[in-house]
Amino acid sequence: MKTDIIQLFENPYLALGVSIAVIMAYLSVNAIMLIWLERKLSARIQRRIGPQRGPFGLMQQIFDMGKLLSKELLTPKHANKLLYVIAPILVFAPVVALSSLFPITSTYIFHDFNIAIVLILAISGINVIGIFLAGWGSNNKYALLGAVRSVAQNISYEIPLILSVIPIVMITRTMSLYDITLAQETYPFILVQPIALIIFIISATAETNRAPFDIPEAESELVAGFHTEYSGMRFGLFFFAEYSNMIFACALATVLFLGGWHGPFLPDAVWFFIKVYALIVLMMWFRWTFPRLRFDQLMKFAWVVLVPLSLINLLITTLVLKIV
């Protein structure tokens, strides 16, 4: 039987504080570890060794964090101070808010919300605003171009993303992530919705601005895109947000398609994280293998390939559900 962790506390504010502290701690450690993983993995792909400080190069990330924390927070002249400062927070905040919704084990969950999917799809859209504010507030043409690209890309890819989630909701007739996971006890939905999973992964890669869809920060064209002017921990927050968004997207894919915590022998939470990190490795593999698409090709891919494909998938799902 499941237990809401939040309901274990009598004081709701205390519950909120504890939840946020746990999630923040996890996301920070996770981001640091993912940066390490990405560096090591890309090194393997590129026949390099990768970072070498400390055991397995683990200390490299700690030193990097120290560097980022100790760096001066520069604000460019003529930048819009308010927008410039809140942008990195807006990018990072949605992930923190939404991480509480994921059912990691079958017994404990931060909070089971009956329309979790709507909440996730709505609030995860906020980080686009953060990226746009970063680009607009920096008073830099490269940043602005990156921001404009980012908005266009995120809005375009949100549609196939949502369309690939709907079949799951139709099959399970629930929007609670806990109930969706429960429905996959016998088999994960990857077996019935493989196309939806592929569309979801592609869209999620685009939503998190990862290569080959990293045109908002395309370094060879836009230097660093929307975060060109950011330094120190403000840049660090963008960096954290990227990896947190990755784990968020992969966790959502795990819950929706890979059966969440279900799996033989090992404990629930272990299975959940194995699936999540396997997907993350896949996303990293994409990044270090493919060249970057051009902006118009990217949009074309979303509107001409992904949206019709997900609509067809939705149609087939509807028909099958009606007949069966």
Partner: peptide, 9 residues
């Protein structure tokens, strides 16, 4: 073009 790996190869 955005592909980093062939550079090192």
């Amino acid at each position: 073009l955005g592909a980093f790996t062939p550079f090192l190869y």
